[in-house]
Amino acid sequence: MQNNADTSGLMVAERRQHILAVLERDGKVVAAELSRAFGVSEDTIRRDLREMANEGLLQRVHGGGLPVSRVNPSFPARERQRPKAKEELARAAATLIKRGQVVFIDSGTTNVAVARLLPRDLEATVVTNSPPVAIALSEHPRVEVVLLGGRMRKDPLAAADGVTIAGVRQIRADLCYLGVCTIDPTFGVTTLDLDESYVKRAMVEASAEVVALVTADKLGTVSPYVVAPLSELTWLFTERGVSQEALAPYRAAGVTVTQDLEAEPA
């Protein structure tokens, strides 16, 4: 016969397994809802969430928990991830730029695809902190390229420091293609790197309209550093395979969601 300590331990393990199941199903857990479901105090649930966060099983946030942010692989490795999906997102979003506009193209592999797919007859100015974006545009006949300065971070292959931010603040752009690491209805656009968050935020603040190209795996994920709330986005391009339920909070925030793209098989 099990003693009380063993039974208590089993109950805790089962409760935490259920918490993980809810997290996988809903993309978040709410402490008050879990408290009611299990018939235990919110303090008990908060302790569960805190210990699960310490074990790397979830990310603790006010009032509940969210999936753990994935650490970004290297830039070359990201380029090999879901290239067809990124290309289709980029092809659809590249048509947003109009003749004569000034446009920020932030760092990121999907944004490099945007640069490659800009119409050949487009006359515009592209401002970027990404050498790969600048290189992709180097043979474009009619696009003027402004490469922002600053210390280049080797992982994202992008300039991101005070010099970069100062350059961004000298420009008023018509449009910004924002590089998105993670995005969630509650926490908006977030990223894994503090310096990058400042640069991205400056681009958003300096742009009339902001577009995010988001593969399905990035939706409903959160990183430590906040870039902007959903209300700052104008467009969100994602894949057809994403459910309408998952996209409803983005539309409710006033974002125009374009979803006429085929999801790439895993």
Rank of each mutant, 00 (worst) to 15 (best):
245 E>D: 10
130 S>F: 10
75 F>Q: 14
217 D>T: 08
58 L>H: 00
49 L>V: 11
80 R>I: 01
218 K>Y: 00
187 F>W: 15
3 N>E: 13
241 G>T: 13
242 V>F: 00
145 V>W: 02
42 E>H: 07
226 V>W: 14
67 P>C: 09
80 R>F: 02
106 D>H: 00
176 C>S: 12
24 E>A: 14
8 S>M: 11
127 V>H: 07
7 T>C: 09
105 I>E: 01
183 I>D: 03
93 A>S: 07
169 R>G: 07
94 A>G: 09
125 T>R: 05
13 A>Q: 07
79 E>R: 14
260 D>R: 05
82 R>D: 14
243 S>N: 03
138 S>W: 13
38 F>M: 11
89 L>V: 09
111 N>I: 13
57 L>S: 12
123 E>H: 15
244 Q>L: 14
265 P>S: 01
77 A>K: 13
198 Y>P: 01
21 A>I: 02
114 V>H: 06
194 L>R: 15
165 I>K: 15
242 V>S: 02
33 E>V: 07
71 V>E: 14
96 L>E: 04
119 P>Y: 06
235 W>Y: 06
205 E>L: 15
14 E>Q: 08
6 D>G: 10
96 L>N: 06
101 Q>W: 14
130 S>A: 03
137 L>S: 06
126 V>Q: 04
116 R>G: 03
159 A>Y: 10
193 D>W: 12
69 S>F: 13
164 T>L: 08
236 L>D: 05
5 A>E: 13
202 A>I: 07
266 A>N: 13
235 W>S: 09
264 E>S: 15
112 V>F: 10
128 T>I: 10
6 D>C: 11
238 T>F: 12
127 V>L: 03
226 V>R: 14
103 V>C: 02
60 R>T: 05
222 V>Y: 14
177 Y>W: 11
23 L>C: 02
161 D>V: 10
49 L>K: 11
21 A>T: 11
53 A>L: 10
237 F>D: 01
103 V>K: 07
19 I>S: 01
246 A>N: 06
191 T>M: 05
173 A>S: 10
68 V>H: 04
158 A>I: 12
80 R>K: 14
96 L>G: 07
55 E>Y: 06
115 A>D: 05
81 Q>T: 11
213 L>N: 05
224 P>M: 05
222 V>N: 09
254 G>I: 09
6 D>S: 12
145 V>S: 08
143 V>A: 06
18 H>R: 04
164 T>F: 01
122 L>R: 08
8 S>P: 09
117 L>M: 14
251 R>A: 15
172 R>W: 04
246 A>C: 04
117 L>V: 00
45 I>H: 02
230 L>K: 05
149 G>A: 07
215 T>F: 09
195 D>A: 13
61 V>S: 00
197 S>I: 10
81 Q>R: 11
26 D>V: 07
43 D>F: 05
41 S>E: 11
148 L>S: 00
99 R>A: 13
102 V>T: 15
85 A>D: 14
11 M>E: 10
256 T>Y: 06
206 A>F: 04
56 G>N: 09
96 L>T: 01
45 I>T: 00
21 A>M: 09
123 E>L: 08
116 R>Q: 15
211 V>M: 04
179 G>T: 04
226 V>I: 12
121 D>A: 12
92 A>G: 11
239 E>H: 11
62 H>M: 14
1 M>D: 08
251 R>F: 03
